[in-house]
């Protein structure tokens, strides 16, 4: 334990309004902490810079999953355990439950929250490819009110996002319109559990009249932040899935991916395996009729 608990202040106001008021009072001074699976690791390593923290854990207004007619609204405070346990969500948007099952292991899933995962903004975030593939929006809140932003526009750089200093992520809005889409999610990590993605790909695609009518590819660890693969998508949009379009789409992915070399893997490996994942998805897409 390299951090000093006495060097940090932690408040737990217990309700959303009080947290927002605190953030509004001195914007940028307070760091929200939910399940602690990121910040407490930094704390133990003596790398937690934040001196003032405010706890989001146990705030009921943030921990929920609500089905509406056209969408699921997932509270930012929902844990990955909550998401796995939500039968309706798992049935309709299975990639979310699948991604949730890949977070660390059970103890991590019981504490890590979807909002924390997205706000933390790791390029390797497990939930991001699914969130990108499902065309989700994030709802942000402050004392000034709420606003909604496409998740694909949420990240602006390595560990940077559009949140204002007084804002929190309140919820994720996931549209319920993917029943006819072919869906794909695969994470490539160093082992089967307790793994940080070397590369991951989430995808949804709708094939109509023999052509790709709608496609979204969300990738982890192929750029400084989780991102859509717009060029690969463009190579497929409106086209038939053939050996040629698969080849073109994979080339586009290889061209647009900007992975890095680090202690966890190499850029070359990430780029090529990313392309292999895309190819695996497209072969499946081209082969089988959507039920």
């Amino acid at each position: 334990m390299r951090g000093n608990p006495e060097a940090h202040e932690l408040l737990a106001p217990g309700n959303l309004a009080a947290v927002l008021a605190l953030l509004a009072e001195s914007p940028g001074e307070w760091t929200p902490i939910a399940g602690g699976t990121e910040l407490m690791v930094a704390h133990a390593a003596g790398r937690l810079d934040a001196k003032k923290l405010v706890s989001l854990w146990g705030i009921a207004e943030m921990r929920f999953t609500r089905s509406e007619a056209d969408r699921f609204v997932i509270g930012a405070g929902a844990t990955f355990g909550d998401l796995r346990a939500h039968a309706e969500l798992a049935a309709e948007l299975p990639l979310i439950a699948k991604a949730a099952s890949w977070i660390g292991a059970i103890a991590n899933q019981n504490r890590a929250t979807i909002g924390g995962n997205l706000v933390n903004g790791s390029p390797a975030a497990d939930s991001s490819p699914a969130m990108l593939a499902y065309d989700t929006e994030v709802e942000l809140i402050s004392v000034r009110g709420t606003r909604r932003v496409a998740y694909s526009a949420f990240h602006t750089g390595y560990k940077r996002n559009v949140l204002a200093p007084d804002e929190l992520m309140l919820a994720i809005h996931a549209p319920r319109r993917f029943a006819k889409h072919r869906q794909y999610l695969r994470k490539v990590g160093p082992r089967r559990a307790m793994a940080i993605a070397k590369v991951a790909l989430g995808a949804t695609a709708l094939v109509e009249n023999g052509a790709v009518n709608e496609i979204r590819l969300g990738a982890a660890s192929l750029a400084p932040f989780p991102t859509r693969l717009h060029k690969a998508e463009a190579a497929l949009q409106g086209r038939q899935v053939t050996a040629e379009t698969i080849e073109t789409a994979c080339s586009e992915l290889l061209a647009e991916a900007r992975p890095i070399d680090d202690i966890r893997s190499t850029a070359e490996y990430r780029r090529h395996v990313g392309a292999n994942l895309l190819k695996e998805f497209l072969l499946e897409l081209g082969r089988e009729p959507v039920p």
């Binding site: 932690l10 737990a12 699976t37 706890s55 504490r111």
Partner: peptide
């Protein structure tokens, strides 16, 4: 939070106690 040696149950949920600030 990697090894699980500190696992305890908190309100019936398995957690890594090294990642729980005691106030929570």
């Amino acid at each position: 939070g990697e090894c699980g040696s500190c696992s305890v149950r908190m309100n019936g949920e398995l957690v890594n106690s090294c990642l729980v600030p005691v106030l929570q």
